[in-house]
Amino acid sequence: MTAISDIRSAQTDGGPAIFPAFSSLSELHWQVDEYTYWEKKQEFLLDTDTYPGWCLFAVENGSFSYEIGETTGVASSGDLVLCPPNVPFHRTMTAPGLSFHYLRLDLSMRCPASGTAETERPDGSLSLPVSITPGDRRRLFDSFAKWKTIGPLPVPERKKLLSHYWNDIWTSWCLELLSAPGPRSSQPPQDELMNRAAKLLEQHCSQPYGVKELAHELGLSSVQLIRRFRSAYRLTPGDYLTSLRMERACRMLRETRMTVDQIASVCGYATGHYLSRLFAARIGVVPSEYRKRHRV
């Protein structure tokens, strides 16, 4: 199986990669529609919320745990959590005093020839990680400081400048991916335990299996596993597992006549309804539309 965390790979098994190639990632263009800075927030007003567009929680200080679809994790200082539209965002503050930047975002594709943003949205071959951690912390926190300065400006100017600095963060992270190893890379991570973790996720991607089971098998706590895996692969184990399952689901939709319920059962999901919801959130279209577009 082609490793889904090798984000630089443009295609797998003749079909589109679930994580796009670097060029596709860097061509994404974000528009900030709303911005709020929360300083030393004591608790979330809602434990679960659903947003009509993309939303970003960029942590400056403190930490919180989250669950978005099949992905769970803990976000701390310097982590960015990206929630797709209309997907429940479960979050719990691990300790009071969380400072973070909230951005509501719109997403389009940048036209490579002109550098302008196209009106159409990315197609069904696109899926993005839930959590990213830029390696250049100095640049990231410099952007955080600029966001707070920009916040009080009039709306048109504020949106333009906020969008500029968020796209700068995003593009810088895309560049970091060029040197990020994948589990099938010729230069795998030095953390052998996390290499084993990646292999276990690949072996169990067709079964009900998650972070808790993996952490127990490796003799780690869930928090330890998430931090080490993300350090090694630039993805949380939950994101990695979901991407493996989405890759398998896409391949089956393209190459077989299996129903969505049947595909769900061999991708580790209890029902076809749940797979359809997650598939639409991660891939951008429902399974039937994906099959219609990509079936040979």
Rank of each mutant, 00 (worst) to 15 (best):
P96F: 11
S243D: 05
S143Y: 12
M246V: 00
L253I: 08
L275C: 03
D47Y: 12
S179Q: 14
R137K: 11
M252D: 13
S9H: 11
T242A: 12
N195R: 13
S186C: 09
T149M: 11
T48M: 13
P52A: 03
E43F: 14
I132D: 01
S65F: 05
A113Y: 11
L177A: 06
S243P: 03
Y165D: 08
S127D: 09
F89T: 03
H101G: 02
H90F: 13
S221Q: 12
L218M: 07
L98N: 01
L275G: 01
S99C: 07
I150F: 08
E213K: 15
P181L: 01
A180R: 15
S24D: 14
L161W: 08
M246T: 08
M1V: 07
R230G: 05
S288G: 09
L178N: 14
T2D: 11
T92Q: 13
A215Y: 14
S172P: 00
V130C: 11
E39M: 06
L80K: 02
H294V: 02
W30F: 09
Y209D: 00
G284S: 03
K292E: 15
A232M: 00
S163T: 10
L162D: 00
S163N: 04
S231V: 05
R293G: 00
A270I: 14
T71F: 02
L46W: 10
L46T: 10
P181G: 06
S9L: 07
R104Q: 14
S231T: 15
T119Q: 15
Y35N: 03
R277E: 09
R230E: 05
A95H: 14
G151T: 13
C267S: 05
I150V: 07
I283K: 04
P237W: 12
R254L: 08
S143T: 08
D6W: 06
E39V: 09
T94E: 13
E60N: 06
R228S: 06
E39A: 09
L235S: 12
E255M: 08
L82V: 02
P237F: 05
E192P: 02
H204Y: 13
D33C: 10
E60G: 04
H29L: 09
S276I: 08
S63A: 13
S114H: 10
G69F: 04
N167L: 03
G115C: 02
T2Y: 10
Y35P: 01
I7F: 05
D13H: 14
T50V: 12
K160V: 07
R245L: 00
D123Q: 06
S23H: 11
G284C: 01
R139V: 00
T119L: 15
S26P: 04
M258N: 12
E176S: 03
L235T: 06
E255Y: 12
C174H: 02
L82P: 01
E34H: 14
E217F: 03
P122K: 05
S265L: 12
L45P: 05
A58T: 02
L105A: 06
L103D: 00
R138A: 15
P287Q: 04
G124A: 10
Y269T: 07
K146E: 15
L225C: 04
F64P: 04
R245D: 00
I7N: 11
S131N: 07
L225I: 03
A281R: 02
Y37E: 06
W170E: 00
S131Y: 07
M1L: 09
V285R: 07
L103M: 15
T236W: 04
E176Y: 09
G53D: 13
I150G: 08
R291E: 10
A58Q: 06
R245N: 00
S127E: 03
E120F: 14
R248W: 04
